[in-house]
Design a binder for these strands. Sequence first.
DNA 1: TGAAATGTTGGGGCG
DNA 2: ACGCCCCAACATTTC
Length: 478
Amino acid sequence: MNTKKSMLVWFRNNLRTEDNITLARAVEQDAPLIPLFIFDEKRDCGSASRLWLYHALKSFERELFRLGTRLIFLKGDSRIILARLASETGAKALYWDRSYEPYQKEQDQLIQKDLEGWGIRCESFNDTLLFDPAQIRTRQGTPFKVFTAFWNHCTSLPEPMLPVRAPQRLSGPAKWPQSKRLEDFGLRDKARWSNKVEAFWEPGNVDVRKNWRKFLKEKLENYSHDRDRPALEGTSRLSPYLHFGEISVRSIWHEMRQYMVQHRRAGIFREAETFLRQIVWREFAHYFLFHFPETIEHPFRKEFEKFHWKKNSALLCAWRKGKTGYPIVDAGMRELWATGWMHNRVRMIVASFLVKDLLQPWQEGAQWFLETLVDADVANNVFGWQWTAGCGADAAPYFRIFNPILQGEKFDSRGDYVRRWVPELSKLPDRFIHKPWQASPEILAKAGIRLGKDYPDPVVDHHQARNRALFNYARMKK
DNA sequence: TGAAATGTTGGGGCG
DNA sequence: ACGCCCCAACATTTC
């Protein structure tokens, strides 16, 4: 055991040993390392995400154990915990992965001030984004507000840092500080989520990189088409692993680049770029929240503060439960409730439906997503909802309203997705699968459906709802 | 990564 | 053969 002064390495959204800059830099200091995780209830996440965190931590702890060390679990206010830990261990430095979320940014500054006041060196590293958001500006020095401009800028920059290898071995201090058990965090309390999520996912899968390579090999060549078909597994499904940093976005970026070079087949370049654009949308969302932290609650376009929403808890409830009477919407909401995840195309459809057809505030939808998604991420979530609501940066214009029937027919033409998640409609012929109310009584009877009983009547008429939304929009502008 | 409304064109039925 | 109407198909504009 080492008797040199130790260092604290605080992990947050970089729960991996591969391409972990924070950890790599700490290792270079040649001091005993105390890896730690703090469960801060003030910065709690939703239930589905909490379950994911449990597994991510569990496997990260195992990874560290294999490298000959431990992961210390602590619970409480990060600032208080770190102050106590610093004095208890006599550590000479604290390293951590930077967070770009509003609450954590402030908290981190306070922590740094505290510790540096006691002569403890503090350093933070970017382990979650391709580029440091503070460094990226337009020529005028303002933050980018348009995705395409942001994308062009990012792709003209020098490539993101190359991934770094996992350390071979980590040495710990002579005396370890007290640690809680992971189980003490109560992350897994809600059994309903653990059963459901564990049936559909492999949370804490240390081999997620294998899934990623499989995606490259099998899914990439049809990505731009298949990613929009919710009945298929056309997407990478990496989002939950990206959120807690079980996989590094830099690794993904570079492996995709490499793949593009190795497979110069026609079309692959386009597919790869479509995928990388998705990665950069994520980047843009985080970037945007960093520069406009108030958008976490408030619409980016100020005029939307006075938009006339029509709060209605019954409608909100029908939406959450997947009982709106619009099959594609209900399928999405039920997939979410059953698995803790929803296909991205369907996220846009259900979000548009809540905000435009039901006139519920986007914040309500955002809250539900945060609670139920295994990949719940404040930056992506807020950005996506404001985009749909038309009040965000580079957002869809408000009058761009999705038609749930047409979207269903376009992206789930044979109704496979609807039938999977709304089984009561499974016997309905294809041509009515997205609009059961148009089927004749005989057809409904044959399919064993009593509308209003086995499956709800539509909670609103889309045509009317669209006009109402446009009217409210016009009123807001006046 | 929208959809509906409105405009235009051209072929075919029909008196 | 001609003019008229209808309407599908496509394009453009509007919300």
